[in-house]
């Protein structure tokens, strides 16, 4: 199973060139059953990555382009009157899929954003007084433009908190971009995506997460990082939800690296992408200044 995962990772690397670290973290996020937020300037490949991820997981996925006039019903679906049966029929929206690609999520109005919020956290949708469960697994892979772009409304802290990780791809390296231009004539890069997981494999991998060993020493170190954020006033404190997310992501990272135990290194690797958007929601995803400060100043005795 792990071998399959590694092959997926490799083929993703064929699609997005030179971003091994981010791809591994993105896979970590999905393996840890968390929602992923990709934040970048337009044109850096975040939509491509989102598509590639959704594709390679072997799950059914829908894509929604968020705009300012998008209504909650456009996401969740509406009941339509069927004249033949003289009944209302619920027409499920795009949220009823295993992977929801929410493109440019911060272009939507807060009302629509909070409709997504409920779906993300509770994995259910309430319409017309009826609660409908979402399929399982359910992932949201959202992309957003940096906040200073025109026509964006920022996701509130509470909603940012729902995302396990926030990643940024950044500009490709020169060699990678060169390769990208050379291959440009050959068509879409998504064609390189040959490997796919199937839903069962993903689920059993997620189950294996539970059997990854976490020693007390690692938990102590993780807590001292979290504690350090709580004793400072230049950043928001990390919540227990954040520490749970941190542990889950660390476990996933250990699993992807091929270990059945979590090391201090796993924690340090996932920490910036798990913690930065919780420490300072206004910062851009490319800056890891707060989380890196914490990593630097918290003594790692392990």
């Amino acid at each position: 199973m792990l071998a399959q995962l590694h092959q997926v990772e490799q083929s993703l690397n064929q699609v997005i060139l030179g971003k091994q670290q981010q791809i591994r973290l993105a896979l970590c996020c999905l393996l840890a059953d968390g929602h992923l937020l990709l934040e970048d300037l337009p044109g850096l490949g975040k939509t491509t990555l989102a598509h590639a991820l959704a594709n390679s997981l072997g799950l059914s996925y829908r894509r929604v382009q968020f705009t300012s006039d998008l209504l909650p019903a456009d996401l969740t679906g509406i009941s339509i009157y069927d004249a033949r049966s003289q009944q209302f029929h619920f027409q499920p929206g795009p949220v009823f899929s295993q992977v929801l690609l929410a493109d440019e999520i911060n272009r939507a109005s807060p009302k629509t954003q909070s409709a997504l919020l409920e779906a993300m956290e509770e994995r259910q949708v309430s319409t017309d007084g009826q609660t409908r469960p979402l399929p399982s697994p359910f992932f949201v892979i959202a992309t957003q433009n940096p906040l200073f772009h025109a026509g964006t409304s920022a996701l509130p802290e509470s909603q940012l908190d729902r995302f396990l990780m926030r990643l940024s791809l950044g500009f490709p390296e020169r060699a990678a971009e060169h390769q990208l231009l050379v291959d440009d004539s050959k068509g879409s890069r998504l064609q390189f995506l040959t490997q796919q997981l199937d839903g069962n494999t993903l689920q059993s991998l997620q189950q294996r997460l539970g059997s990854v060993t976490v020693s007390d020493a690692v938990i102590d170190y993780l807590l001292s990082l979290v504690d350090a954020s709580r004793s400072r006033n230049d950043m928001l404190p990390l919540s227990p939800r954040a520490s749970k997310a941190l542990l889950r992501a660390s476990k996933a990272h250990a699993l992807i690296t091929g270990r059945d135990f979590v090391t201090a290194d796993d924690v340090q690797q996932v920490f910036p992408s798990v913690a930065e958007h919780r420490l300072d929601p206004r910062s851009s995803a490319a800056s890891h200044s707060h989380s890196e400060l914490l990593l630097e100043q918290t003594v790692c005795p392990l």
């Binding site: 090391t263 201090a264 290194d265 340090q268 630097e296 100043q297 918290t298 003594v299 790692c300 392990l302």
Partner: peptide, 8 residues
Amino acid sequence: PAGQNFSQ
């Protein structure tokens, strides 16, 4: 460095 783990 204080924040570095032993593997690194």
